[in-house]
Simulated assay, not measured.
Amino acid sequence: MTQLRRNSAWLPEMFNDLFVTDFMPKANATAPAINVKESDKGYIVELAAPGMTKEDFCVHINDEGNLIVKMENKHEVKEENKTMRYLRREFSYSKFEQTLILPDDVDKDKISARVENGVLTVELPKIEISKEKVSRQITVG
């Protein structure tokens, strides 16, 4: 009878293999990080946008009722000295678009957005539902 050697470390290795994502295609690696929080009064979407201003964003609701967040930033360093030529010129361009499917309890008429300290914050208030119980007699005809 052949004796099998037991490796006490097999369990952690097995679980590490389950969470390896090297084989998965990378999503847009330059996409900004997004946080979504929920409270009793609504949802808050935070999007990391360092160096961006409110002019760099377009936030709207499309025909299907989804929230669309677009960001586009063109930055170019211009030198006005005409007697020199460029040996190095730095510029950047970034573009991002995210579609968020909104929950049914969002009051779409009261959505607001602001940019502050490099973070775009979109507030999605929930529809206020009356908590008063109304009882009444219904006449059967």
Rank of each mutant, 00 (worst) to 15 (best):
M52D: 08
E13D: 07
E72G: 03
T21A: 09
T53R: 06
F23A: 15
N16K: 15
L102W: 03
L18W: 14
K78G: 04
K70L: 02
R85F: 14
I68W: 09
Y43F: 15
P12D: 08
V77E: 15
I61V: 09
A29K: 15
K54G: 02
I101D: 11
N62E: 01
A27K: 12
R85K: 12
P103A: 09
F96T: 02
E38R: 11
L87W: 07
A27H: 06
I68K: 00
M84D: 05
T21C: 04
T30H: 12
Y43P: 06
D22W: 04
M24A: 06
L67K: 00
P50R: 05
H75S: 03
I101V: 14
N28E: 14
A29I: 05
R89Q: 11
T30M: 09
E55R: 09
D104G: 04
D56M: 04
P25M: 09
E80Y: 11
F96R: 03
Y93D: 04
M52I: 02
F91N: 02
E97F: 00
D17E: 14
H75M: 06
F15N: 14
A31I: 05
C58W: 11
T83G: 08
E80P: 05
P50L: 01
R89N: 09
E55S: 07
G65A: 03
D56L: 06
K70N: 09
V59W: 01
F15L: 15
N73S: 07
L47F: 02
F15K: 11
L87F: 05
A27Y: 11
K70C: 12
E64T: 03
L47R: 07
E55T: 09
F23T: 07
V69A: 08
E97S: 10
A48I: 03
E97C: 03
R85P: 09
A29M: 12
I68Q: 01
N66R: 03
T53P: 00
A31Q: 10
A27P: 02
H75A: 11
E46C: 00
R89K: 14
P12G: 10
N16D: 13
G51E: 03
E64P: 00
N81W: 10
N66Y: 02
E46P: 01
N73V: 10
N16H: 12
T21Q: 11
N16I: 07
D56W: 05
Y86C: 06
A27G: 14
D56A: 00
T99L: 08
V20C: 03
T83P: 03
I61F: 02
D63I: 03
L47N: 01
P25K: 13
N35M: 04
A33G: 09
T21F: 04
N28V: 13
V69M: 07
A29F: 12
E80F: 15
H75L: 11
F91M: 09
A49Q: 00
G51Y: 00
M24L: 13
N35I: 05
I101P: 07
